[in-house]
């Protein structure tokens, strides 16, 4: 009974507030009505709680480690790095100022655990797939991504000119990634793949010679070769798994009322060139690797 009463009350309040916001001059014209923050079912009232994993890696996050902050390598709250910038832009279009965005450490496996979510949005290079979308909501794409193979300079794998030439090598990928599927579905190498809990473990295995090549998304590949290993080289980009363009989406709780609003914000960002501009700012270096056929 109680629950049944609360819903209309909330809806009514939202309507009134939305009307008030409209009267105030439609500040958030990009996002249509029904998405005013007061009416959204948020984890913390008045705040947009965004989850991502710790450490936060470039080029997705930036700004380095801040003193007294729990974030390692980079800090999402700086607004630097592609995903941080996209998240703040989405937040802005939903009516949240920078101070009203709260970042929370959410390990990848927690992002899709059943039960009430501890975040409103989760942003951590999660690739959309129809099967996954049965258990969580995905936003529209905020980045169309390709997978790439990283190896050590001078090793035989570094000379591979095509996908077929990769079959003989031992490859690895972080768990739960499309990178893993690129190994098993696109390359299909003879040795079984190495599958790692974290990107760091994969990089260590590559350095140790436990794997010949590490498959990661292209921007991460550029980061690894630029910053994590001295003698790294990008062997090339891989064709998309199943011929479908891979895309990163924000993860939301299944059936979240926020999803449609985030989608509208992302559509507006795509239409007015904001997404393109952010890619230019944060991922410009991530273009131009040879394409393996």
């Amino acid at each position: 009974m109680r629950k049944a009463l609360i819903a209309p009350v909330v809806a009514l309040t939202a309507l009134v507030l939305a009307a008030a916001a409209g009267a105030a001059g439609a500040r958030h014209a990009a996002v249509a009505a029904g998405c005013d923050k007061a009416g959204l079912p948020l984890v913390t009232k008045g705040m947009l709680t965004i989850g991502t994993d710790n450490p936060a890696y470039p080029p997705w996050f930036g700004g380095g480690e801040l003193k007294g902050s729990k974030w390692k390598i980079d800090d999402p709250a700086t607004g630097q790095g592609y995903e941080s910038a996209v998240a703040y832009e989405v937040a802005k279009r939903l009516g949240f100022g920078k101070a009203q965005v709260m970042w929370k450490v959410v390990p990848f496996s927690q992002s899709f655990a059943p039960g009430r979510k501890k975040f409103d949005l989760f942003v951590n290079q999660v690739s959309y797939s129809p099967v996954r979308a049965k258990n969580v909501d995905f936003s529209a794409s905020y980045y169309d991504v390709a997978q790439a193979v990283v190896a050590l300079k001078g090793k035989p794998i570094a000379k591979a000119a095509g996908v077929a030439a990769l079959k003989a090598f031992k490859l690895g990928a972080p768990i739960g990634t499309t990178s893993y599927r690129a190994i098993t579905d696109v390359i299909r190498p003879k040795p079984g793949p190495g599958v790692y809990d974290t990107l760091n473990d994969g990089v260590t295995a590559l350095k140790n010679g436990q794997i010949d090549g590490l498959v990661v998304d292209l921007p991460t590949a550029f980061y690894i070769t630029a910053a994590q290993i001295d003698n790294g080289v990008i062997v090339g980009q891989l064709p998309a798994v199943g011929g479908q363009q891979e895309r990163f989406g924000l993860v939301l709780g299944k059936g979240s009322a926020v999803t449609a609003c985030v989608d509208r914000a992302l559509a507006a960002m795509r239409a007015d060139g904001t997404l393109k501009k952010l890619v230019g700012t944060w991922l410009a270096k991530s273009a131009g690797a040879p394409i393996l056929k």
Binding site: F108, S109, F112, A113, P114, S129, V131, R132, K134, N135, V136, G172, I175, G176, T177, Y180, R181, G192, P193, G194, V195, Y196, D197, D201, G202, A205, Q210, I211
Partner: peptide, 21 residues
Amino acid sequence: LLGTVEAFRQSQIDVAATFNF
């Protein structure tokens, strides 16, 4: 943990692919 795909890792891979436990 070391990257070997044994039963637990295989199930983790399946869980991550489908978001189903």
